[in-house]
Design a protein around this nucleic acid. Structure first.
Lengths: 141, 141
DNA sequence: GGTCTATACTTGAGTCGTCAACGATCTTAG
DNA sequence: CTAAGATCGTTGACGACTCAAGTATAGACC
């Protein structure tokens, strides 16, 4: 049961820093991660939703913000008129790279200082057993 | 970094069940836990806020709900007119006991099935190292 | 073709929690 | 006693997200 409390504390901290340094929510960042590592740096909105554990409507509103900021743009799909891709712009990619630098440092500060490499692996393994919507692969932070 | 995702999934699940079975938020439950184990089953609002990692104003609004439901009542403080205690009513205590039963079962289902006792201890120990507002002691769920 | 169901996305309303500003009270120091 | 400052609690305005409902498109089956 420390789990929930631990999360709240960590989330709060990381989120605050991300907000302060880059004007990004943790969710915003999360979406940027997904897009950055996606083929063409574009994803269908539904897929983003599943990946970051938000609702479709949540994604709509979140992307609204990223679009207004010019970091993401809409792109139609040739074969299916229902779907609209969210594609990272160049500005968006650069923004993400910046944010990633400080965010990783923040994580390192919070976790690295408290756990050895082994322990981190262990923690990751244990948490990995929990039921998750599957994440789309090769990204670490 | 699975941490955040793992949390989102677990929280969502537990929260949904608690909501469905008892009409309680996870935060509501969290507050009830604190009150239930407090001396006199009453706590100052500030202390609740610190214990459950919410803001003072968040607590005000949350307690509004619990008061309307009749599970918590205000109680003045003789020695300091600023503070108002939140005290669990009998109905509130019973409500909590019910909720606790199913909530513990839910947790058992989510965690117990995936981890051995040792692993749970390990996980708890690791998570315990993260920076937390201190919890007030002897409660486990 | 026409109908029926499923999927992708958006929108309006509501919930939960935050922050910033406030009034009230306590405490401390002159 | 009084002024200055800290602490407790509430409130208004807002942000992030959800759910339910709606629109538009796609696909399957007759």
């Amino acid at each position: 049961m420390r789990f929930l409390r631990a999360h709240a504390a960590v989330t709060r901290e990381l989120s605050a820093r991300l907000e302060a340094a880059h004007g990004l929510t943790l969710s915003d960042y999360d979406v940027l991660v997904q897009l950055y590592h996606a083929p063409e740096r574009a994803l269908r909105r539904v897929d983003i939703a599943r990946a970051v554990l938000l609702t479709a409507s949540g994604i709509t509103r979140l992307l609204d913000g990223l679009e207004r900021a010019g970091w993401v743009e809409k792109r139609a799909c040739a074969s299916d008129a229902r779907v609209s891709y969210a594609a990272l712009t160049e500005a968006g990619a650069r923004k993400f790279e910046q944010a990633q630098r400080t965010h990783r440092a923040d994580i390192e500060e919070l976790f690295g200082s408290r756990f050895s490499a082994e322990e981190r692996d262990q923690l990751a393994e244990l948490l990995g057993r929990l039921p998750l919507a599957e994440t789309s692969g090769a990204c670490s932070g």
